[in-house]
Design a protein around this nucleic acid. Sequence first.
DNA 1: AGATTGACTAACC
DNA 2: AGGTTAGCCAATC
Length: 111
Amino acid sequence: MELERPPTEFERKVFDALHLIPRGMVTTYGMLGHYLSCSSAQAIGQALRRNRFAPDTPCHRVVKSDLSIGGFAGQNGGDPIERKRRLLEAEGITFLENGSIDPACCFHFDE
DNA sequence: AGATTGACTAACC
DNA sequence: AGGTTAGCCAATC
């Protein structure tokens, strides 16, 4: 069982970076990792998965490298994903016909 | 302390 | 287009 614990330093860095993403934009696990000098997008996903402050920290603004939706609330489909999609739409994200996100909505970190 | 687990990704078939 | 694989790495058995 996973007990309550304060965020690790790594998780704090990830959560802090989320607040740099403007409303109506998204980034990817890989790009976020690159910004944090972490070469494992998977580790980034792990941190977001364990984000217990969601959606206060905008973890829904992180999607897959191919700009498909990615996961949410520990799942890769079903209801949580529907919620993630609606959150993004409500923020002004535009989706293409194939269901992926408009590349123009991709936020680029400086440095 | 070692193995397992992933909200991943690029590179292959 | 879809599957498999290897590499990645923090957190969790």
